[in-house]
């Protein structure tokens, strides 16, 4: 499934979306940059509350398919600008990490029952 489809089903708002065709291979959650550096796998969608500029650098280095900023304050404009520059997909949501992880997990597992956004 590609990033565009994930964004549509989860109702994500794009902040920078240079590669909507990127294949989403899995999911990863952490608010700590060091953990993401150590543990995220290439192709993962990274769900985080962290809005630090370095999120973009980590996503780029680890070749993640997209970064989903879970509910929280608007990131500084330079975060989206940097993502665009570096070719990193950066999207935001009003949902929390638990819900985003729950729905993405179901989506990647092909379980249609747990996609609230797809219901009526």
């Amino acid at each position: 499934m590609n990033a565009r489809e994930v964004a549509r089903v989860l109702g994500l708002e794009p902040l920078a979306f240079p590669h909507p065709e990127a294949e989403v291979g899995g999911g990863f959650c952490s608010d700590l940059l060091s953990r993401a550096m150590a543990e995220a796998s290439p192709g993962d969608a990274w769900i985080t509350y962290q809005r630090h500029l370095n999120v973009v650098a980590v996503a780029k280095l680890k070749e993640l398919s997209l970064v989903i900023l879970a509910r929280g304050p608007e990131p500084e404009p330079e975060v989206a600008a940097r993502a665009e520059e570096e070719g990193v997909n950066l999207l935001r949501s009003d949902d929390g990490m638990f819900e985003l992880a729950g729905r993405l997990y179901a989506l990647l597992a092909g379980d249609p029952e747990t996609h609230p956004a797809e219901r009526g």
Binding site: L32, Q50, H52, G72, E74
Partner: peptide
């Protein structure tokens, strides 16, 4: 909301959002 001057070590401990 979201404005922070917290150092990186604090962010890595789950603070400074």
């Amino acid at each position: 909301p979201g404005y922070s001057t917290a150092p990186d070590w604090a962010r890595e401990l789950g603070f400074g959002a």
